[in-house]
Design a protein around this nucleic acid. Structure first.
Lengths: 349, 349
DNA sequence: GCTCACCGTGCAATCGATTGCAGGAAAGGT
DNA sequence: ACCTTTCCTGCAATCGATTGCACGGTGAGC
């Protein structure tokens, strides 16, 4: 067996490379470290450097990132917190975060917090134990001072998906998104409208709902509190809210759900009540996830730039680590009209 | 300011605790390390131990996991590879993996490989650089020898979602699942059936398709090759395949898609061709993701125990690290009947 | 009262890298 | 030809923990 190139056995360390190349380990470190910097173009390599690199390649040397961080006090990793990866919205944002971070030389650690305050604290502590260089939080809650505490502790972080006060964040302009939805439904002639508003502690639901209601008010359309219901952001949540909305004498002719999955739940409830989506009740969602357009009744929705949010969140965190000051970034939403929302019928009055 | 308890400043190290407690750092290490073992019950603590613990708590000491792994050569972390976290099926499995791993004292690193062979190699190397104690692969490809190579390198791993030869794996019994789908559709009287078969390199799609076709053959129902189409596992993939299936003189009366999202894509295509799901063409999916039952036409599907797969995959990997031999585990699927598949009509014959 | 075992503690090496400092060689300037 | 600058390299300390070894004290056993 070829003991000089251990495959499944012991790892090749910098020392192995150095010994083999007949140089000191510090020399080997410098040579290999420079390579990473990419400043290759500046002049030819010395013989030694050439040799060290060749041997490192031959031996399949891979530096131990932990040993390096121990010394440098940097880990080149980010921690990412999400309420749940099974939520396609957050999964998409995380996907973009991971990809962008990698391009910039960072690895990421994700953690699910199930929107639980205790879990949020625990997971952040675990991530900080792992010496992450910064955090991206996708689960900020308006009813918690946790992000304020983080800021006070000087932990570098950026919020995404949900914003929180003046803390650095990259989100969709949800208030505008809510306004677009309202303008759309009102333009179709709907006057008896309802909102499936999401969790009260999430800025997403709150802002979308506020924008929506603001436009209604400005247009003189009254929306009683009984037609604005909080809900979970998933299918079951939308369904539960819709069941309450429909169990009245004059149900709404249009429902704005602040999340596509909740909107799908609303559609399910409508079906069970014998009502046709679009024809009997208009439904508008939020985010424009890929299935929205393929549903048996394609879902009208407000598109939010999910991947862009992830990308910019990483950019913002990097900028922050560079000492720059990033503020609150809001990306533009776009109204997508589909078959689930059509003009109100006369008899729906 | 209270310099004895640095909040945002330098970290508290074991040395700080030791000095403060008036003991050697090794003593502090031993005391705190024993706590983790949980063998607390065995007798009262010595004064020293008591003091060290108290001080560690007061100072908010948190051990540096990297420094520890450097010495112990264990990281208590697993690496997890998935084709994409934006696929709810894999996200759900990962969610269970993460939770189970944490219960057993392991942190996890996830990586997306987009089902790309190059990326798969790269990401595994990065995970191994990070000294993960083991890998869980959710993206094994039948057209690649990568897992064979990993096995040859003695890297501890377990496959999930997709199996590969005799390598340790925890999957759904997909062949049985395919059989269930076929039995269901044939029992409804369908004879002109089609399969949206997923990617050819995934055991999931392959096994489900094989099971389905086996039952058809055993029942004397011929399924021409033109009605078995490969596809991506997402909505767009199902839609593309369905468009080809429907662009013929006598389209099938039933379609089995090996994935719920692909099934939703099929439903979208049917709608655009003016056909009604369930009434004109039966559709059966696979996995029973939560939206399946809330779709305007609820989707019949083969339920696979996704969370259980994740849990057992972790258990299997732990067992393997304990030196035990785990074989190929297949969990039972279940047929869920809903409105998207109804008895064939006379005129469809 | 003596011996042996055991427990608690300290010492120092170690894991695998990075980096400030210093010495020597080569290159460049006058 | 001499001095200065620059570059390359080696030495050794360091990051924050863990752990084998040795030593001293205490308690048990006879």
């Amino acid at each position: 067996m070829d003991l000089t190139h251990p495959e499944g056995g012991e790892r090749v360390t910098l020392r192995d490379v150095a010994v083999r190349a007949g140089v000191h380990v510090s020399t080997a470190s410098r040579v290999l470290r420079r390579r990473d910097r990419g400043t290759e173009s500046r002049g030819r390599l010395s013989d030694t450097a050439e040799r060290v690199r060749r041997i490192a390649d031959e031996l399949g040397y891979r530096p131990d990132p932990y040993a390096a961080s121990l010394r440098t006090q940097r880990t080149d990793t980010f921690g990412v917190l999400v309420p749940a990866l099974t939520d396609l919205v957050l999964a998409t944002i995380y996907d973009a975060i991971e990809e962008t971070a990698k391009e910039r030389g960072y690895d990421t650690f994700v953690a699910n917090t199930r929107d639980d305050l205790e879990e949020q604290r625990r997971r952040v502590d675990l991530l900080l134990d792992r010496r992450v260089d910064g955090l991206i939080l996708g689960d900020a809650r308006l009813d918690s001072t946790f992000v304020d505490e983080l800021a006070a502790r000087d932990v570098p972080f950026v919020l995404t998906s949900r914003r929180h006060g003046a803390h650095p964040s990259v989100t969709c302009d949800d208030e505008l998104g809510g306004r677009l939805a309202a303008q759309h439904l009102l333009a179709l002639g709907h006057r008896r409208v309802a909102v499936v508003a999401g969790e009260p502690y999430a800025s997403t639901g709150q802002d979308r709902t506020r924008g929506f209601l603001d436009v209604c008010r400005e247009s003189g359309v009254r929306v009683p509190a009984s037609r604005v219901l909080h809900s979970r952001f998933d299918v079951a949540g939308g369904r539960a809210a819709a069941e309450r909305l429909l169990a009245v004498r004059t149900p709404p002719t249009a429902v704005f759900a602040v999340n596509d999955f909740a909107a799908i739940g609303v559609m399910g409830a409508l079906r069970d009540y014998g009502m046709r989506v679009g024809e009997d009740v208009a439904v508008v969602g939020y985010n424009d996830v890929p299935i929205a357009r393929e549903l048996p009744v394609p879902l009208s929705t407000v598109r939010s730039p999910l991947r862009e949010m992830g990308e910019q969140a990483v950019a913002a965190l990097c900028a922050r680590l560079d000492g720059q000051d990033i503020g609150v970034v809001r990306l533009a939403p776009e109204m997508i009209r589909r078959a689930s929302s059509v003009p109100v019928r006369r008899d729906q009055g």
